[in-house]
Design a protein around this nucleic acid. Structure first.
Lengths: 124, 124
DNA sequence: GTATTTGCAAACGTTTTGCGGCTAC
DNA sequence: GTAGCCGCAAAACGTTTGCAAATAC
């Protein structure tokens, strides 16, 4: 894989944020630095970074994917009122637990946990 | 809400299957019974049934949503080789546990757990 | 020099919507 | 009679792709 300032900028932005942006949001942010970057390039690089296991893709059910550079085994909480996505670092279930419960012969590579509700700020 | 034979057929089909079909698959199946049903009607009714909490929508990250009439609190395992979706009925985490771990003020309504790997049949 | 990446525009697949006609009640 | 539903076709949406020009090395 060859260097490109576009990929560098996308990766750097994702590494430095905890806000789980969508592709569109990544595009808007990186545009501040690289004015003529295209949305297609953002999508292409997000896909490559996923394949290199440098970022994770979150399919939260909102219609558009979100991206997360934090590779630690954690879950996400989506506030249905404000739309914020919160990290939940307590490991809730280990992949091995899931494999055990599925039964003999199953191999679990990864898991995604999404919780939905109302956050503390919106509950006030 | 008014009765319609289309909605009835969609709901009946979903209640009677455990295969987590996509909208397209629901359409293909229900067409056996109602030959001139349209895909738009399937989508409209799937959305209504969701809103009535009669079915759940699964966003597995495959690009298309799947639908599940089993409302019990369970998880899903997707085999990345054969594409099958398996139910996992052992309750892995309770919503209350998640709320506890998020902290004071958070309310968790529902959660979705998706595990990915290779199933017993494909592992042979 | 050449293989990879880019921006652009067009295409894609899934889902939603506008509309005029039909149906439940 | 009328509000809600239908089928159809077109639009909308997020995402991917084909292409010729630019870039990394």
């Amino acid at each position: 894989m060859r260097y490109s300032k576009q990929r560098e900028a996308i990766n750097t932005y994702l590494q430095g944020t905890t806000c789980h942006p969508t592709a569109e949001e990544v595009y808007e942010q990186v545009k501040h630095e690289i004015h003529d970057i295209s949305l297609a390039t953002v999508y292409r690089n997000l896909k490559q970074l996923q394949e290199l296991n440098l970022i994770k893709r979150l399919d939260t059910g909102e219609g558009e994917a979100r991206f997360d550079a934090d590779l630690s085994d954690h879950s996400h909480f989506l506030c249905e009122r404000c739309g914020n996505v919160y990290d939940l670092f307590d490991e809730l279930v280990a992949p091995e637990d899931i494999a055990d419960k599925l039964g003999k012969g199953f191999t679990v590579g990864r898991k995604m946990i999404y919780a939905y509700g109302v956050c503390d700020k919106c509950n006030k």
